[in-house]
């Protein structure tokens, strides 16, 4: 998931200065989980912006519909085409992927250019939940987990060291930068000790290959999923869970 937090309302208002008709669009994926762009948060934002004199149209996506995945979000966008065409600006209550996926869709498919503003700060990949999340993977393009006991030092170590620990480990193995976190290399050491593989710590791990992260990276999926078929599968699982 892409963790996110809301921007201060004052920042949002600054973006929307001089814009009257605003379309709010959220996301049924991460933004719903993080309470930054679910249907409830869109309603709350609409109320606040109405008090500021804005005319609001809302595009809320139910849980499971992702704004960044155009086969899903385009269905909702098409239903709201008129409101979007008429608006002065869109406020995207999603991550930056959601905003830019929609921006591209409007430009490439509809040929319209609208000012689009973010209401959130996205923090990147995260895992856990329902309340507490931690960043574990940065999508570097050259996964090192096979060499580091299943713990990514590029993310879990503040310095991203491939051969740690550094000299700043606090007493009891905590990180000098993030006092609440155990040093990634202490964690790696403990895991390798349990596997009886401490000798692996004597290998010099190569510097990470950052060429795999030259941006923007693009990916082409040869046989795209059949969305309706996949959703039917999801429905079955949900029914089997008794929901």
């Amino acid at each position: 998931m892409n963790a996110q937090t809301p921007k201060p309302f004052e920042e949002v208002l600054e973006y929307l200065e001089g814009k009257k008709k605003i379309v709010l669009m959220g996301c049924g994926g991460c933004a719903t989980i993080y309470h930054t762009g679910g249907i409830k948060e869109i309603d709350e934002m609409a109320e606040k912006l109405t008090k500021e004199g804005k005319e609001i149209s809302k595009i809320g996506l139910p849980f499971g519909l992702f704004t960044c995945f155009l086969p899903m979000s385009s269905m909702v966008l098409n239903e709201n085409k008129k409101a979007i065409e008429d608006c002065d600006a869109m406020l995207m209550m999603s991550c930056g992927d959601g905003l830019q996926a929609v921006r591209g869709y409007l430009e490439d498919e509809w040929g319209i250019v609208k000012p689009m503003y973010p209401s959130n700060n996205a923090l990147g990949f995260s895992s856990g939940g329902p309340s507490d999340f931690i960043e574990e993977c940065q999508g570097c393009g050259d996964c090192e987990l096979g060499k580091t006991a299943g713990v990514c030092p590029l993310v879990r170590c503040a310095k991203g060291l491939m051969n740690g620990p550094c000299g700043g480990v606090r007493e009891d193995g905590k990180c000098e930068v993030n006092e609440d976190q155990e040093c990634a290399w202490v964690t790696i050491y403990k895991r390798l000790e349990k596997f009886g593989e401490l000798d692996k710590l004597l290998e010099i791990r190569e510097p990470h290959d950052w060429s795999k992260q030259s941006r923007p990276r693009t990916v082409t999926v040869e046989h795209p999923i059949d969305l309706l078929k996949e959703l039917a599968g999801t429905k079955k699982v949900i029914e089997s869970l008794g929901v």
Partner: peptide, 20 residues
């Protein structure tokens, strides 16, 4: 860092640096 706690990961790193 002789005073590191825990010391073992530091010792392995020292060995690694000597190999390097």
């Amino acid at each position: 860092g002789p005073g590191m706690d825990p010391l073992e990961p530091e010792l392995y790193k020292l060995k690694r640096k000597s190999i390097a």
